[in-house]
């Protein structure tokens, strides 16, 4: 079973078509890059897949559940991290972990254990009792990602997770993503950084609400006779 399957998925806002009949599949354990210029319809598509937005037409299944009828089941099985910071700044690091663990229904023991593991992995044991507002942005993003996969979802959606983060931290962030993918978590990620696009197994590029290209980075570069993903993106985004 494919973790994400869409068919002709469309979202209209009045007469504006934000996402125009997109069809694609994401394989299990894959890092799927979802690229496109601002306003191309990436966020709309992602919100529909997460059950935050009702599609106008078309079909989509996430983790085997229908986005129209089983949004609640989908939510139990996905993790989500948005470009807007999603942790509570006025709560301590471990209080945030406890809260999100709790609302996903983890038992107290599991929460305790996972908190320990997570802090160890991020090397943040010393910061467990600090308010999140006191952490540097890169740390916050790494923490947010770890919290988003705390309940072991089969799919995690990342909406421009590394916006505004320095290159070193971005690299560390991608290590976390690889590690999760290695454990079989499917990663669906949007980004504007083309070097990050190279890290993905497959990439789709959206232009004006449609998917214009979908393949591995290597194939795309060959197809568009481009040196880098940057060139591929520019050719597609400009070449109307």
């Amino acid at each position: 079973m494919q973790p994400i399957v869409t068919k002709e998925l469309t979202k209209k806002f009045g007469t504006f078509i934000a996402t125009n009949a997109i069809t694609f599949e994401v394989k299990e354990g894959e890092i799927f890059g979802f690229l496109g210029a601002n306003g191309a319809g990436k966020t709309t598509a992602m919100r529909m897949l997460c059950g935050l937005l009702r599609p106008s037409s078309g079909e989509a299944k996430v983790a085997g559940f229908d986005v129209y009828k089983q949004a609640d089941r989908i939510k139990q099985n996905i993790g989500y991290m948005s470009q807007r910071f999603s942790l509570y700044e006025d709560l301590k690091v471990k209080e945030n972990i406890r809260f999100y663990g709790g609302i996903y229904g983890l038992s107290n023991n599991t929460i305790k254990e996972k908190t320990k593991q997570l802090l160890q992995k991020l090397q943040m044991e010393a910061e467990a009792d600090q308010l999140v507002s006191a952490l540097p942005l890169g740390w916050k993003q790494k923490l947010a990602f770890s919290v988003a996969i705390l309940h072991d979802p089969s799919i995690v959606f990342l909406d421009e997770p590394t916006g505004g983060v320095d290159p070193v931290t971005r690299r560390q962030f991608w290590d976390l993503i690889y590690e999760a993918a290695g454990r079989g978590v499917t990663v669906f990620v949007t980004t504007h950084y083309m070097d990050e696009a190279e890290y993905c197994d497959r990439i789709s590029i959206m232009v004006d609400g449609r998917i214009q290209a979908l393949d591995t980075p290597r194939q795309l570069k060959a197809q568009f006779q481009a040196e880098s993903m940057d060139d591929v993106f520019l050719k597609l985004a400009r070449g109307k």
Binding site: L52, S86, I103, Y104
Partner: peptide
């Protein structure tokens, strides 16, 4: 305002 509602909306919170 701070955007955390988005995060809560993708959780199974009823």
């Amino acid at each position: 305002e701070i955007g955390t509602i988005e995060q809560l909306n993708v959780t199974p919170i009823r």
